[in-house]
Amino acid sequence: MYELKDRDKIIVYTGPDGSGRKSVAEAVGQTFGMAKVISFVTRAPRPGDVDGQDYHFISHELYKQMERQEEFLESVEIDGDYYGIRGLDVELGLNKYGCIYTVLNRDGADILKNMYGDKVIRFFIYADRRTVEERERKQGLDESIIQKHLSHYDHDMDYRSSCEHAVENFDLGQATYEISNTLENYLQRGLIDKD
């Protein structure tokens, strides 16, 4: 396990599928110039997914091989597919930037929190069930995938109280602003207005 330095932080975005956690994470990441740690997944790409940008899409066989080689810092199974982030990616990101972010489900978020304690800051991103459903339909997701995600919705929402912060995402700009302000306190970059 990688040993985190004093100022290192891992920002985890979690919440129900369709809540916009990936969009929020990327907007905040760009604001702060943070490195994103991209998960490896065995599921097929969905409409809008870009390999190497949203996920690393790999076969079950390759995933299992990487797991046997203990490459994953966290690994979870969701509906028969595997998701994991590589320890090496976390280490490289932290060495270069000191602060990284990733998008994980509640199980993955718990694994990192249990490993690194207060170095992991979880932002729970959520929207109401109808909004989530509408967003996923607009993305062009298959109806069976939408229904599968909605079947997890209440379970995912229960995790909200376990996270350090919860942000409702009805407006991307507002959610990004709120999270950015909160992160300033954690990162203590010492920004001083010289005027």
Results as ranks from 00 to 15, higher is better:
residue 73 L to F: 12
residue 145 I to T: 11
residue 175 A to S: 14
residue 193 D to T: 11
residue 114 N to F: 07
residue 35 A to K: 14
residue 192 I to P: 08
residue 5 K to Y: 05
residue 48 G to C: 04
residue 115 M to Y: 09
residue 60 H to F: 06
residue 76 V to Q: 11
residue 187 L to T: 07
residue 147 Q to L: 13
residue 83 Y to Q: 04
residue 111 I to C: 03
residue 110 D to L: 15
residue 20 G to N: 14
residue 64 K to A: 05
residue 194 K to I: 09
residue 36 K to R: 15
residue 183 L to H: 00
residue 82 Y to R: 03
residue 38 I to G: 04
residue 74 E to A: 14
residue 176 T to C: 14
residue 87 G to I: 00
residue 12 V to W: 03
residue 59 S to L: 03
residue 116 Y to W: 03
residue 59 S to C: 00
residue 185 N to F: 15
residue 194 K to Y: 10
residue 181 N to M: 14
residue 49 D to E: 10
residue 40 F to T: 02
residue 127 A to G: 10
residue 187 L to G: 02
residue 61 E to F: 11
residue 60 H to W: 12
residue 37 V to G: 02
residue 165 H to N: 03
residue 88 L to V: 15
residue 144 S to M: 04
residue 65 Q to T: 04
residue 19 S to N: 14
residue 39 S to D: 06
residue 86 R to C: 06
residue 195 D to E: 15
residue 156 D to N: 07
residue 191 L to E: 02
residue 148 K to L: 02
residue 174 Q to E: 11
residue 192 I to A: 09
residue 104 L to E: 01
residue 109 A to H: 04
residue 24 V to K: 13
residue 98 G to E: 02
residue 113 K to E: 10
residue 2 Y to N: 04
residue 90 V to C: 02
residue 164 E to H: 14
residue 188 Q to P: 02
residue 177 Y to C: 08
residue 4 L to R: 03
residue 107 D to K: 10
residue 190 G to Y: 05
residue 43 R to L: 11
residue 155 H to L: 05
residue 127 A to W: 09
residue 169 N to M: 09
residue 88 L to I: 12
residue 96 K to N: 11
residue 18 G to V: 13
residue 61 E to M: 10
residue 172 L to D: 07
residue 36 K to A: 15
residue 90 V to T: 00
residue 4 L to S: 03
residue 45 P to K: 05
residue 138 K to V: 01
residue 19 S to P: 10
residue 91 E to L: 13
residue 61 E to N: 04
residue 160 R to W: 00
residue 51 D to W: 05
residue 146 I to F: 04
residue 100 I to T: 09
residue 121 I to L: 08
residue 103 V to E: 02
residue 173 G to T: 05
residue 80 G to A: 01
residue 69 Q to E: 15
residue 120 V to D: 06
residue 130 R to N: 01
residue 86 R to Q: 12
residue 41 V to P: 06
residue 181 N to G: 15
residue 49 D to Y: 05
residue 168 E to R: 14
residue 18 G to H: 06
residue 94 L to I: 10
residue 149 H to R: 14
residue 153 Y to R: 13
residue 156 D to Q: 00
residue 181 N to R: 12
residue 66 M to I: 09
residue 83 Y to H: 10
residue 68 R to V: 00
residue 12 V to H: 00
residue 145 I to N: 08
residue 104 L to K: 05
residue 36 K to D: 09
residue 64 K to P: 01
residue 130 R to H: 00
residue 158 D to T: 01
residue 128 D to H: 08
residue 54 D to V: 11
residue 11 I to H: 01
residue 141 L to S: 02
residue 23 S to D: 10
residue 148 K to I: 04
